[in-house]
Every structure is written in structure tokens, then in C-alpha cells.
Design a protein around this nucleic acid. Sequence first.
RNA 1: GGGCAGGUGGUGAAAUUGGUAAACACGCUAGGUUUAGGACCUAGUGCCUUAAUCGGCUUGGAGGUUCGAGUCCUCUCCUGCCCACCA
Length: 833
Amino acid sequence: MYPFSNIEKKWKEKWLKTRIYEPDLDKAKKPFYNLMMFPYPSAEGLHVGNAYAFIGSDIYGRYKRMRGYDVFEPIGLDGFGIHSENYALKVKKHPADQAESSKERFYKQLQEIGNGFAWEERLETYTPEYYKWTQWIFIQMWKAGLVERRKASVNWCPSCKTVLADEQVVGGRCERCDSEVIKKDLEQWFFKITNYAEKLLSNLEKIDWSDNIKIAQKNWIGKSEGARINFPIVDSKENIEVFTTRPDTIFGATYMVLAPEHPLIRKLEEKISNKKAVQDYVLKTQSKTENERIADTKSKTGVELEGVKAINPANKKEIPIWIADYVLSSYGTGAIMAVPGQDERDWEFAEKFKLPIVRTVKPPKDFKGDAYLGDGPAINSDFLDGLEIEEAKKKTIQWLSKNGFGRTETNYHLRDWLISRQRYWGPPIPMIYCPACAKASADKNNAGWQPAPLKDLPILLPKLKDFRPKGTGEAPLASSPAFYKVKCPKCKGPARRETDVSDTFLDSAWYFYRYINMDKKKEAFNELRVKKWLPVDMYIGGAEHAVLHLLYSRFLAMAFKDMGLIDFEEPFTALRSHGLIIKEGAKMSKSKGNVVIPDKYIKRFGSDVLRMYLMFIGPFQDGGDWRDGGIAGIERFLTRVWNYFEARAKFIKKYPSATNVSVIKEVAPLFHQTIKKVGDDIEDLKYNTAISQLMILFNALEEPVSGKNNARGTLIKGFVGLNKNQHGEFLKLLTPFAPFITEELWEKLGNPYSIHQQKWPEYIEKYLTGDEISLIIQVNGKLRGTIQATRGISEKEAIEIAKGVDSVKVVLGKKKIKKTVFVPDKLINFVIN
RNA sequence: GGGCAGGUGGUGAAAUUGGUAAACACGCUAGGUUUAGGACCUAGUGCCUUAAUCGGCUUGGAGGUUCGAGUCCUCUCCUGCCCACCA
């Protein structure tokens, strides 16, 4: 064990004092924005999962700094939002007070892990200086026409007592508290992210992101191309509009289905003869949670709207209209043409309710299933008969548009971002509602609403005593007249301030613009700074944000670009997701009580050991399994490094003239290979193999002088292998991983402060390979021996030597060699019988 | 049901364009050493067989391509994560 505790304390202080991690934001020559997803400050503090992500990101940043970049690596807290508020509720503290103590704890822990943070630019999203600009952004979005207030069927979490965005409902449950989410019809604020659906999708091809994240976004955006088709209703002016990706199957549409929430149901009320049954069904589905609906997937339910019929425009047949909850009001038009022959769900429904089934695609002879989804020629389809699906689609759409029944349409799974929350701990939405102006307005949506005047920002969040969610659909701020009673900015009449707050994900969708502008009090972000530093060069974070934070940030950037605020569309040039740290095979969770807190490990082993252990577990992008036992290996390694270099430093002091030991042959290639491999591996975030390579090099050079050791922990090591410079180079290669111990040893060797500002070692191509190679000898592809040879040995020579090797001779015997495969400097393979 | 990762020793894991499978560590075994510790040093450690060598087998399973397959192809089984009645 080496005296890590003194060392780490000493350098932490010196780094802060000498500001080596604070680039000049205005004058930096080679800016490199190295960003990591900032944490939600929960009260338990940082756990190893957070530490893992931050350390992995920091290693990359430290490497880039040594590569000559002005690396900016900021940190902050995403402290607004339901997560922090729920915790405050649990411990019965005011969120503002809780935020203060969480902040203290988090920053303290974050200082411990040895990252090169630019502390001077840290930010917390809940400070008025920050959310002033979050509100400002809301208003800019409003002005750009990207904000809408409208009534919709939305996700409601009964436990958090607020609405949630689609992205925050995970498996029908609230992302924060895991309660089952229900649907409610409420008037809410939306950001129109769907305006950018196509760009969000197509830009994915332009950015250097982890594939898993790109694919997740692609699936979430969920583009599907098809047609919108009108089905007229008999004796009515109304139509049923449907969206389908299979217009070619229209001749098989034997009935229609509306979602229970579909507005047509009310419009057709007069004609419906079984009104009571219909009403009952609608009520029943509304009381179901999302999960109950999903659980019922296998048993379809529904009611026919008796007394009304639709007309299939293709064959003019009258077909029944049903309502069923397997059709979702939120996708497409909330209505479908049911084609049981080609859709499994429709098949099931048709079977259950004895509805006619017509196949319109001919299944193969051996097909045994129900609905047939595969390819094949059209049948029972009049003018489409015989056509393959793609052709039939085209022709159908042509026919539909010619006759005024439909057109092509593209649909997206992506919904608008529901941004309002009926909670307390967030930035008040800076909008004002004036009833008088509403009356005068002709708009359907947004009537009477206007933004708060910019000079009033920030709209301060008052420190309410009772901040609990009310559950009435109103936010806690609605019980504070002092807050909501305002004058209309337009007509000066009595008006009401919005009392909902905005979603936490709005706070985090733009924080990286603010880090580089913390000194700018009069603007959210400064044009020149943004030009210099953005987009972010490398962003590292968890994959769980694939469709949340990362999608919202991209959306905001696109909106900013269109507003002329910035000149790029994609905020993160490169993005990598890191893996998850699990504990002995299981996911860490509070309920299992297996959450690993880094503090005690730092105390016992130092943060260099913790850093390296975490990175050594496995590939950074895969995560790994935390086992206490594994730390020992790293602890031993760093202790040996310490002993070796300390002895080395003493030796230099004693024999100053003996410092230029020449490079020993065997180590030279290994040394240069290590420089190459460590650099390449860091670029690829394969920290585990970079570390193992450093161990290999160190093991090779840590040879005792006399060949004998004195049997004690502190061996007098020989200094073979590396010359004076190369000793320092080894420390440089190690320093991104273990910044403290290397800084100390660097100093001990008599080098100038700081190792973190040194140039990364360069390898020399010609030294990468040694002269000696080992040539593999195979017989029929099986290893039968190896020989040492000089690089570049000829085939002829190699064959000769190989044939002479005993173990090869035995196998070859007197058999005839049919063929010889020779791979230069690698292997020779004799093929016999 | 769909998508994405994966499946290699007792454990975490390595393995360029197909070319010595198991690097680097942990653990274990034996020996050494000591100021008896949460230590250190040396040697060994995939499996079977053997006193040891020799030999044989081995990357979830079954086939295939190839001089040669963990790596490529086909089928199949299993695990994890994400999405999910998306028309």
C-alpha cells in the first residue's frame, strides 16, 4: 500500500489552485468539449454506477488534454424535478433545503473521484440564475410556434399526481415511482417535437453515436409509411378516416374499429341503437390502467355500433363499425380498417365476434397460421389480383386518390412532448392566461395565453410551505394567489399565471449551452462561446436516456437552429453509452440493498485504485460486475508501481550520472506497442485492455538488478529496459487512469508540474515489431510446433526448418504433403491426407 | 410479439483482415519469507488421461464453407436489456 491519502489530498488542492482544468473559454485554441451526463442528486449520494460513468468520461478527457486539446469538462446537478421532490417528500424536508444538502454531499463525492472537472463553471438547474433561462427558452419555443396548449388523453401517474410524457412511461408504469399509469383527458402544454420527426430520424445517419442509441431512437420515432383512407358512413356526412400501412389489403377490410375515445362516437350517437352498451364499454375501458389494457392483449373486447354502417370504398360493400380498446386513440387516426386476413389482431377479433374474414394475399401452400403477413400475390381484390404487395400498395393509393378516398401518408410513433407537470419542484411555466383576451381570440388552442414579459424573468418559484402534489389536476402553486394573480400584459385586466411547472427534461435538454456561459448574466448563451465550444465533442452517458434526454436535446437544438440562435442541428457530435455496473450478477437497487457507494473504497484504497478497478472490470461500453475481491489486483499493481518509481527516484538522486540506461532490445518493441495500444484503446473506450497492456509492460520492466530479491515487499528494482525519458513516458500512459499517483511520482522523478499538461507519448513505427518472430507450424490446421525465426524468413527456408522439428516429423511420418500454406511471419501449414 | 446486446476456465475477461483460444487480473494449490497483515515473493493452475511426458478434447448446441473457424454462413437453444394491441 502506498500513501495515497496524502498524495490525493495534496494534488486535489494544487490542481484547484493552479486551475489546470479550467480552459480559457474565450481564447482556447483547440477547444474540446468533453461532456458527461450530469447526475440527479439523490440523497444517498453518488453510487458506483455514477462514478463509473464519470471516471470513464474523465479518462477520455485527460487523454485528449495530453493530445493538445483545451479540454472543458464541466459538472453540475440536475436537481429540479420529480425525482428530487419525491425524495424530499419522503424525508419530510423542503425540496429547496434538501437540494442544499444533496449538493454539498454530491460535490464532495465528485471531488473525491479524481476527475479533471472545471469546477468554476458548475451549475444547478434549480437556481433562479439557471431556470431564468429555462423559462426564456420556453418563451422562445412559444414564439417559434412550437408550444401548444391542448386537451388530450394523457398519461397520469396517480402516485406522483401529475401527467407524464410518453417517454416517461416505462412498461405502463411511471418512470419515477413505478406506479401504474392511467389515461386522463386533460388540457396540457405540449412541445411540438413531432414537427421534427423526420429530421430527428434522418439526421441519425450523420452523427457518430453508439448504434444501440441510434437504433433505440429510430424505433421510438417509429416511422411508418402507408395511406390515409376515408370510409364513408351510410346516410351520414361523416367519414371514418383510417391510417394503414397495408392499403393493398383494402378488399379484405370487412369491418371498422374505432378507439373508445374516438370523437365520432359522440357525433353518431343519434343513430346508434345500442347506446347504453356502447357507453358502458367506453366507461369500462377508461377505468383500466395502461397495463390492464396491455394484459388483455390476448382477449379482445369490443362492442358493435349498431345502426350504423360504413362503406368500403373499394368494393362498395356495407361493413359494420365496432369500438374496441385494441385500437389506440393516440396512434394514427384512432380508427382502423380491420383486415383479419392479413392482421393477427384483427383475425383474433373477427374470430371472437364472428366477423367475416377475406384473405387478400395468397399464402403459400404449406401455410398453417391464421392471419398471413408474408408476401404473395393479391387475391379477392378485383383490379389488384395477382400483384405483389408493393405494387398493389402503389396501385391502391393511385386508385384511392383518383377517386378521392385517400392519399399516401407517413405516420410516426413519436408524440408531442407533454411538458407541463402538476408539481412544485420545477421552473414555473412562464405563461399567463387572460380570460378577456381569450374571448377576443379566434384560436382554438392557445386562446388567451401569452408569455410573461421577458423583463419579469425569472418567474421565481416561491418557497411554498405546502408543496405536496394535490392530485386534483392542479399544481401546488395554484393554492398561492400571491403567485398566480397577475395583470394581463396585453389588456392589463385581471389574469392568471400558469401554475404548472415544466418537465425536468427541459432543464437538462440545454444545460450544456449554459456551462460555457455561466459568467454571462444577460443571455442564456453567447453566440461566440457557442461557436467556439459547441456542438459537444464527446458525450458519455447511460443508454437509459436514449429516448428521453437525448431526443429532447436534439429537438431543442433543431428548434434553436431554426430560430437562428445557433448554427448546428446536432448538439452532440459523438456520443457513447456506457454499460451498467451490476453487483454479483444482479442489478443494484435500493430494495435489494446491494448498492455500492464508492466512499468507503476510496477511503480504503484511494481513488486511483477505485478508478482503475472500475475500468478494468470489462469494456466500458458493456459495464461489468462489481466484486470486492477484484480490487486487490489493481491495488497490488499500483503499489508495485509506487515502489518501483520511488526506488527509481532515490536511485537517480544518489547516482545522477547513471540515469541514461540504454534501451534494452526486448523491451523496446513492447514499449512502443504499449504506447500505440493504450492510445488506440482509449479512443475506443476499451480501458480494460489498455490497463492490461500497461501491466504487461510494467511486468516486463520490473526485473530485479541481480536476479535475486531480498524477499521483502520493497525490492530494490533494476532499472533495465527504459531510459530516463521512457520512465516518465510510462507514467504518462498511466496518468489518465490514475491521475494522483502518477502526478506524485512524476514530481519525484524531478519533472516539471503537471504531468496532466504533458504531451502524450508518440510511438515509433519501426520499433513496433521486433526482429524475432515465432512461426507457427501446423499439420492439417493443427498446431504441431513453433520455431523462432528472423522476420522475413522465406517460405523455402521455413519449410525446411519446419520439417526438421521433431514434433512435426512424428505427425508427418512418411505421408505425402499435398499442399503447403505459408503466411509470412505467421505460420506454415502442411496439408496431408 | 418486435428490436438490440450477449453466451469463451472456478470468477471478471482477452483474442487485428479467419492464422498458437484463454492475454491481463481475481481465486485456488504448493513452497518461501516476515515486523503475523486486509501482506509480500517464487512456481503451478482450461478439461480428460498420465508418476511425468506423450496424447486427446475444448469457445451454448447441430450442421456447413475453408489448408485452417470463438471469428464467416444456415438452423437451433438459452440469458440480459429496451420497446410493445403502432394498424
